[in-house]
């Protein structure tokens, strides 16, 4: 993997909801294998930023390219780009009418990227990797939040993505389940996955992130290594935010 390869390029990203200017101009390059944690107060626009990256939200202005391909272009093949950009949601969003295994197999089979047998083998392997081999035939409803989130990660990994987006993946979990999800994410980071993680888990950001960006009022207020941003913040907003959460 070429560490200098730019996986995500964001230039002048703005997003308005009516009169509400949620993102006011974001520029960032994210490199292959990099783990970027996005922190900031709620309502600061960090989730909106993440959702613009795979165009779940339409950017009002600006350019985003994923592996050199523009996803903000009106003519972009969004489905094609999304196939290698996995996303994990705060509310898990597992498909309740499918078993755990079918949740994981769903996209590769529907998109005819794998045969049923291949997808099934891959699903079993991924579910073992996230520690849920014994739950493959369970319905999502019967699982704990932490287990559901690990299935959701396996479901995203089933598409063999090279970028993973995490939208507050542990915010809806009971405290005792946060660890099991962060463990899976940590392992993924160690294996060289390019990750953008919107999170309130400062410990995770400090330990795993290559770069932390602090977003407030729709712009990146400060960025750098965890030691720089969290250990020695320069921006008063960053300082004030960190004093509240640390």
């Amino acid at each position: 993997m070429d560490k200098n390869e730019i996986k995500i390029h964001v230039e002048g990203l703005k997003k308005n909801f009516g009169d509400n200017h949620v993102l006011r101009g974001i520029d960032i390059d994210i490199h292959a294998g990099e783990v970027v944690c996005v922190i900031g107060p709620s309502g600061s626009g960090k989730s909106t930023f993440l959702r613009c990256l795979n165009r779940l939200e339409e950017a009002t202005e600006g350019v985003i390219t994923i592996d050199g391909e523009s996803i903000t272009d009106p003519k972009a093949d969004v489905d094609k780009i999304r196939q290698h950009v996995g996303m994990v949601f705060q509310q898990f969003n597992l498909f309740p009418h499918y078993t755990v295994k079918r949740n994981v197999m769903f996209a590769p089979v529907e998109l005819k990227l794998k045969t049923k047998e291949e997808a099934e083998a891959k699903a079993v392997q991924l579910l073992e990797r996230v520690g849920l081999a014994d739950k493959i035939d369970a319905k999502p409803r019967s699982l704990s939040g932490g287990q559901q989130q690990r299935v959701a990660i396996a479901r995203a990994l089933a598409m063999d993505p090279d970028i993973m987006l995490f939208d507050e993946p542990t915010s809806a979990l009971d405290p005792e389940m946060v660890g099991e999800v962060l463990d899976v994410m940590r392992e993924l980071a160690q294996q060289g996955m390019t990750m953008v993680v919107v999170t309130h888990e400062m410990g995770f950001a400090r330990e795993v992130a290559d770069r932390v960006i602090f977003v407030d009022e729709g712009v990146i207020q400060e960025e750098g290594t965890p030691a720089e941003v969290m250990g020695n913040p320069q921006n008063p907003r960053t300082k004030s935010f960190l004093s509240k959460v640390l």
Partner: peptide, 11 residues
């Protein structure tokens, strides 16, 4: 969220 989860997989 159901639609978003599916669409985010490229479906």
């Amino acid at each position: 969220g159901q639609t978003e989860a599916s669409r985010s997989l490229g479906v």
